[in-house]
Design a protein around this nucleic acid. Structure first.
Lengths: 198, 198
DNA sequence: GTCTATAATTCGATAGAC
DNA sequence: GTCTATCGAATTATAGAC
């Protein structure tokens, strides 16, 4: 008797997870092009052929490695004058908090030279970030506001965590959150103008 | 009679320049890894072997392709309350002005996934940007200020020109210069505090 | 499911004729 | 200076034994 869907497939799942974790680490530290299927297999302690067997190709493995959820807070529940600080703090939690085994560093590092990653970043921004901002500042100013906020937050990530520019690395976390929070607050809700105003 | 250093070596220089220009274009659009010596040779309409003969190796060719001068204005000659706008305008001139055949787009695109390019960017920042800022705001606040300014300017370049995030691309140049100028001004000279104050 | 062996490309760089 | 021919190494992906 054949089982269509076995209830237990522990080993397979563990192997899959090990491959994916190894791939994400190596893609992040070495980039897509300089990470070989052999490297991933070695780190996951399995045979290179298994990587292809489980994921089909190197490209499909990469596509799964960059998938993740930003878990943005609900900005409508945040005091209006604390929106900037909240976003800045959330962003640093993503980069320097306890749970950092997500795909953001990989996506950020890859997006500049990998069109698939760039497209993924635009998609994530459109689906997760833009709506949250539009709901707060209204549709008229949403685009410009979102572009400015993204440029500041991604820019700090680029300087501090990707290329490791010394002054950006040296800056204390609190000072940075304060400075970025003020900037973002000003981009989103300048001078207390209500979003519904003309 | 042999000439040690011929006064005229037009052809060689033209070939070198053609190779370098082709390399910069291809490295920028395809990235270092996906640009082959054969690609560069084809674009420059010469033999692939000549690329190596003229530049030694692909790595050395890349090193020359990323070399350039930011040509920052002398900030000491700019009114203090116009420093932010001046820097923002200069930055956009680099990215969207008439003379764009420099290495900045290539450096920016490569730095995230190429350690050599990242080091070059840190070096350029340290030699060209940091001193200009330090001379204006004083040594005490120079590092933090430089890190913040860099994060905002590089972040907009990343969003608007590298990954082409729709809201950042759509924003009119004037509106962006105004917004970034205000932010930079605030990072550099907040509330009119003089740089020499404790 | 797992591994060995290798197919099929592709690339950077070199040797040597002219 | 320039081109032809090719080396040697590395890569993804597959075929097939066990």
């Amino acid at each position: 008797m054949t089982q269509k869907k076995p209830v237990k497939s522990k080993k397979s799942d563990l192997t899959r997870a090990a491959i994916l974790a190894a791939a994400r680490e190596l893609f992040t530290s070495q980039g897509f092009d300089h990470t070989t299927v052999r490297d991933v297999a070695a780190k996951a302690k399995i045979d290179p052929a298994m990587v292809i067997r489980y994921f089909g190709s190197k490209d499909e493995l990469f596509a799964l490695a960059v998938e993740f959820d930003l878990r943005l807070p609900d900005l409508s529940k945040v005091p209006r004058d604390a929106v900037g600080a909240t976003l800045a703090a959330h962003y640093f939690g993503l980069w320097e908090g306890e749970n950092r085994n997500h795909g953001l560093p990989l996506l950020m590092r890859s997006a500049a030279s990998n069109e698939f990653a760039a497209a993924k970043m635009r998609e994530m921004f459109g689906k997760q970030v833009a709506p949250a901002i539009a709901a707060l500042v209204g549709p008229a100013q949403a685009a410009a506001c979102a572009g400015l906020v993204a440029s500041q937050l991604l820019g700090m990530a680029f300087c501090r965590h990707i290329i490791k520019l010394p002054p950006a690395v040296a800056m204390p976390r609190d000072a940075m959150i304060k400075a970025l929070g003020q900037t973002i607050q000003n981009y989103m809700l300048p001078r207390g103008i209500k979003p519904s105003e003309p």
